[in-house]
Design a protein around this nucleic acid. Structure first.
Lengths: 138, 138
DNA sequence: CTAGTAGTGACAATCGTTTCCATCTACGGT
DNA sequence: ACCGTAGATGGAAACGATTGTCACTACTAG
């Protein structure tokens, strides 16, 4: 079930750095920026070059093992995805907590638009943001 | 109907530069990046500082007279919006052409998620991209 | 007309991300 | 276990989009 090993096999050679990055991403749970992940690795005593973090995350995205969203500042946030399903999240603007949402309605809507628009290769991104129960009281 | 004058009134003083920017944005029709708009203005003989382009576009967005999306490179693309309605677009990845889409289904879905999630102040962005009939043959 | 304030623009700074390149290392073959 | 090499690393520098600084300009109310 989406163990680090599975991810590592998908993206190339097994190195200590990649293992650390994948571990940290999984442990983090929610969406994280590359820079934040890099900082976490540093403080955990597993220093990894920032661009290695970027490359590993990019490889995970290519392999379909991570999702990407953009926060309001344009930064890319990554989240580990154990199974290669298309998924949408509701993301907390304050703490980064993410909750998968049932997105069947959007999917069918998007497909309908794709069919009736005359456009080809229609892709969609849906981003929901809010304040989670925890943060809304703070 | 969304004449430049209306927009200018909403965002502060009337200056030659702002008039040029708003004009160029309206004339362009689809989504444009700030930099591209700046270039267009320059070649049209109405040079405006890049900084002013950014500020004017930001002011239009604040006033609800422009929409913003992010392209895949993270650049912000702007589009003039004559009326202050929340609207989603299907955007051509190749030429920037945009087609408004009926988004009632997503709106109700988003509201439903907002109500049932426990999250507060839920906002959504939906971005559809594809290749328009023109570009799909090229 | 004049004052006062909002707007302008050249320049530099910032921020996230990518590229360069010299060095290192995992790993399949011997 | 040993090698060779393609692949991986990381520090520095490049990069593109955006924002801040600040002296200067020019709307516009009075």
């Amino acid at each position: 079930m989406g163990a680090p090993a599975d991810d590592l096999d998908l993206i190339g050679r097994r190195t200590a750095q990649r293992t650390s990055v994948v571990r940290a991403l999984i442990d983090h749970g929610g969406f994280v920026g590359a820079r934040a992940l890099h900082d976490e690795l540093r403080t955990q005593g597993a220093p990894v070059g920032l661009n290695t973090v970027y490359r590993t995350l990019a490889a995970l995205v290519d392999a379909g093992r991570a999702d990407v969203v953009r926060d309001r500042g344009g930064e890319r946030l990554f989240r580990h995805r154990p199974f290669p399903e298309h998924q949408h999240y509701l993301l907390c603007r304050a703490c980064g907590l993410s909750a998968p949402v049932d997105s069947a309605a959007v999917e069918t809507w998007a497909e309908h638009v794709a069919r009736t628009s005359g456009f080809a290769e229609v892709e969609h991104t849906v981003e929901l943001t809010g304040l989670c129960p925890q943060c809304r009281t703070t």
